[in-house]
């Protein structure tokens, strides 16, 4: 996980871990309470956010795109739960186009991330070209199956 999502996030997570440990010992020294839990959750959220702020913009764009695709897929699943599975091929193609898009975007994100040593030799232009080609094939299939 940390390998793929980059060391920027990793270092922050490490500090978070240390801090958490300190906090835990402090908590054990004092008597723990529910307000402490809420506080620690808030602290976790804040540190995650500050860690994410260090992520490069192109990766952030990709993340936004992934969230968009997954949300669209979820909306369709809920819709299918309400109206039933009748044009099942349409439902499948609708959901799979979103899932496929999300998967391809994740692949692109892995390949263009500078922290990934594995794809160090792969130019980001080449990665984007692969992404384009795969999307074309995906949407061609989706259009055929949409019915």
């Amino acid at each position: 996980m940390s390998l793929y999502f980059g060391s920027g996030l990793r270092s922050d997570l490490n500090t978070l871990k240390h801090r958490g440990r300190h906090r835990k010992s402090e908590e054990m020294a004092r008597s723990s309470s529910s307000t402490k839990d809420g506080e620690s959750f808030l602290a976790l959220f804040h540190s995650l956010r500050s860690a994410y702020a260090a992520t490069p913009t192109n990766l952030k764009i990709i993340d936004l795109y992934i969230i968009f695709a997954v949300l669209t897929a979820l909306i369709q699943v809920v819709y299918m739960g309400i109206v039933g599975s009748f044009p099942f091929n349409s439902f499948l193609s609708g959901v799979l186009s979103c899932i496929g898009t999300a998967v391809l975007a994740v692949c692109l994100r892995i390949q263009v991330n500078k922290d990934n040593k594995e794809f160090k030799d792969l130019p980001s232009e080449r990665a984007f070209a692969d992404f384009l080609l795969c999307n074309l094939v995906l949407h061609l299939v989706i259009m055929n199956f949409l019915g």
Partner: peptide
């Protein structure tokens, strides 16, 4: 073809395509 119930699925497919197009430009 063009079943009313399936319109959200059609919409989702096309909005994903549109999203892909916009994403490519923004990226």
């Amino acid at each position: 073809r063009f079943i009313t119930t399936a319109f959200p699925y059609y919409g989702a497919s096309f909005s994903t395509m549109l999203g892909f197009f916009i994403f490519s430009f923004v990226y």
